[in-house]
């Protein structure tokens, strides 16, 4: 390995930070892909892959992806919930890989809810 210069250190930091930022648990957007039995049967795994691919292609550092079980609306799977920091969560239903692409462009990057695919804004009241 050639000797490091200060600029190289900054570059390595940027790259490594991108890979490890997740560990600090802070993000601007949190995407939950619903992977209950119904979600998996309806193709949720492909949606997960599509989400992760979008994040990579768009080089996003502030999007966290997590999974959860069935959201209760099994007939509309695959589903995902998009939660932008400080805004109510939005549930998207009947997803395909193409729709995921559009939702990324409009909502996650663009900041405008893609309401044609959205089921509802907000969540059930818990307890």
């Amino acid at each position: 390995m050639p000797k490091l210069k200060i600029e190289d250190l900054a570059r390595i930091r940027e790259q490594a930070r991108r890979a490890t930022l997740l560990r600090e648990g802070a993000g601007r957007v949190k995407i939950t892909v619903h992977l209950g039995t119904c979600g998996i049967a309806a193709g949720g795994r492909n949606i997960m892959t599509a989400v992760l691919r979008e994040i990579e292609e768009r080089n996003l550092h502030d999007v966290l992806v997590t999974t959860s079980g069935c959201a209760g609306l099994c007939s509309r799977e695959p589903m995902m919930t998009v939660e932008v920091l400080g805004q109510p969560p939005v549930k998207y239903v009947d997803l395909t890989e193409g729709k995921v692409k559009e939702i990324f462009a409009e909502h996650i990057v663009g900041g405008k809810i893609a309401d044609r695919y959205a089921l509802a804004v907000g969540s059930e009241r818990v307890m």
Binding site: I6, L9, I12, R13, Q15, A16, R17, A19, T20, L21, R23, E24
Partner: peptide, 21 residues
């Protein structure tokens, strides 16, 4: 708990060697 101690890149990601700079 946040870095792999055997990877210098993990340390650099957490502002490692920035104080040296």
């Amino acid at each position: 708990g946040l870095i792999d101690p055997e990877k210098i890149e993990d340390y650099i990601a957490r502002d490692g060697y920035q104080a040296l700079v």
